[in-house]
Every structure is written in C-alpha cells, then in structure tokens.
Amino acid sequence: MKISNYSLNDLVWHFSQDYLKAYQHRFEHLPITHIVEDWASPCEQGVYKEEFSLWHPIKVDEELTFDNVEEALEVKLHDDIKQYFTAMYSDSLDASCSEGDLSLLFAWSSKDFSRLQENIIGHILMKTKLKQKLTIFFAITDDDDHIISLDNETGSVWVEKVGCDPHKKIADTLADFISQLTPRIPPKAIEND
C-alpha cells in the first residue's frame, strides 16, 4: 500500500479491517472481549459464550477532540495523534512489526475516550515533571516497561521505557508505522478453546 495515497485515518481503518478479516478467518466469528456491565461500546455486536462480547471496530460518528486537554495543559498535541485516537472506536488490536509485538490502543467508547484523555494528561504531566521530551503513547508492547509513542514535536514514532526519554526511533511518521504493521491473531479465542 502506497502511504501517500491514504490519510492516517484510512491507514488505521484499513489495518483494523485486516485484523478483523484475519481474526474471522482463524476463528469464524468476530473478535471477543470480556463483558463489562457498565462499560458498553458501540463496537459490541452480541454475546459469545455468556461472558464475552463479540465486537468489531467502528468509525467514530461524533466529534471527539482534545481541545480540553490542550487548553488545560497549554500544549498543542500533534495532529497525527489526534487523528489516530478519533478515527474509530475499538478494543486494542494486536500487531507485529520488525521491532516485535505490540497492541494498538483505542477508545472503546465516548466514555473510554474521556478516560484515555485523563491517561494522556497524566503522561504529559509526568513528562513535564521529569523535564523530558513530550511524547504521547498509542501502543503497548509485550514488555510491560516499554510503550510506543509519538514525538509530539516531530511526529516520529519511538520506543520508550516508561518514565524515561524515548530511546529508539522506529518510524518517521505514524502513517509510516501503521503501514508496516501486520495483524497478530492469538492462537486461541479464549483460554478454554
């Protein structure tokens, strides 16, 4: 896929659809997640084995913004991170790249988007307190101490250890990074499968 022909929103959406197809090919049903009674999502598409929701990513059809975060912290967030987190609602999507395995983070619902904003505020305050370069996380790795983040000034993508400055650049842009990912589907839908 030639990156220049697609917007970041398109790349994120295409990756989510590739993930969905690969998951359905392996398990012959939509992805599943544990049902949480007071954490409903427009992504949910029914019940699976009583304790799981079937789900799929959906495009956001309401206006989500980071205006409140930017005003409260007097900082301008990079447009790429704002586009990424407002493109769709989804559970996390597992992926692989040349650097290893990761999970892309998204908001599950508008309620979860508010929680995401609070987590980003906490991350920014930590970075400010530590006098570190401002980054915004958007993925976690299989190593609990490392996250994938976007450099707020340049838009480049980095690996960073939590609480530390980014230490390894892995893409020039978020679009470049998303375009190199492949879906990583679990070997089993649930532990008892």
Score class of each variant (00 low, 15 high):
Met1Tyr: 11
Lys2Tyr: 13
Ile3Asp: 07
Ile3Gln: 06
Asn5Pro: 07
Tyr6His: 14
Leu8Gly: 08
Asn9Ala: 14
Leu11Lys: 13
Leu11Arg: 13
Val12Gly: 04
Val12Ser: 03
Ser16Tyr: 07
Ser16Cys: 14
Gln17Met: 15
Gln17Val: 10
Gln17Glu: 15
Tyr19Cys: 07
Leu20His: 05
Leu20Met: 05
Lys21Gly: 06
Thr33Ile: 15
Val36Ile: 15
Trp39Pro: 03
Ser41Trp: 02
Cys43Asp: 10
Val47Trp: 00
Glu50Met: 08
Glu51Ala: 11
Phe52Lys: 12
Ser53Val: 11
Ser53Asp: 11
Leu54Phe: 11
Ile58Gly: 09
Lys59Asn: 09
Asp61Gln: 12
Asp61Tyr: 10
Glu62Asn: 10
Glu62Thr: 04
Glu63Gln: 04
Glu63Leu: 12
Thr65Gln: 03
Thr65Ala: 01
Phe66Tyr: 12
Asn68Val: 06
Leu73Tyr: 02
Glu74Lys: 14
Glu74Phe: 14
Val75Cys: 04
Leu77Trp: 06
Asp79Cys: 10
Asp80Arg: 08
Asp80Gln: 14
Lys82Tyr: 02
Gln83Ala: 13
Phe85Ile: 01
Phe85Asp: 01
Phe85Gly: 01
Phe85Val: 04
Tyr89Asp: 03
Tyr89Met: 00
Asp91Gln: 15
Leu93His: 00
Asp94Cys: 00
Cys97Pro: 08
Glu99Gly: 05
Leu104Gly: 13
Leu105His: 06
Phe106Ser: 04
Phe106Lys: 02
Ala107Ser: 00
Lys111Gly: 05
Asp112Lys: 02
Asp112Asn: 06
Glu118Ser: 08
Glu118Leu: 12
Asn119Asp: 14
Ile121Ala: 09
Ile121Glu: 07
Gly122Cys: 03
Leu125Ala: 07
Leu125Tyr: 04
Met126Cys: 09
Met126Trp: 10
Leu130Gly: 07
Leu130Cys: 07
Gln132Ile: 04
Leu134Asp: 07
Leu134Asn: 08
Phe137Cys: 13
Ala139Ile: 01
Ile140Tyr: 14
Ile140Glu: 15
Thr141Lys: 03
Thr141Pro: 00
Thr141Cys: 02
Asp142Glu: 14
Asp145Pro: 00
His146Cys: 10
His146Asn: 14
His146Ala: 05
Ile147Met: 13
Ser149Met: 00
Leu150Tyr: 01
Leu150Gly: 10
Asp151Phe: 00
Asn152Arg: 03
Thr154Phe: 06
Val157Arg: 00
Gly163Lys: 13
His167Val: 00
Ala171Pro: 02
Leu174Phe: 12
Asp176Leu: 11
Ile178Val: 07
Ser179Gly: 01
Thr182Pro: 00
Arg184Glu: 15
Pro187Tyr: 00
Ala189Thr: 05
Ala189Glu: 13
Glu191Asn: 10
Glu191Asp: 04
Asn192Asp: 14
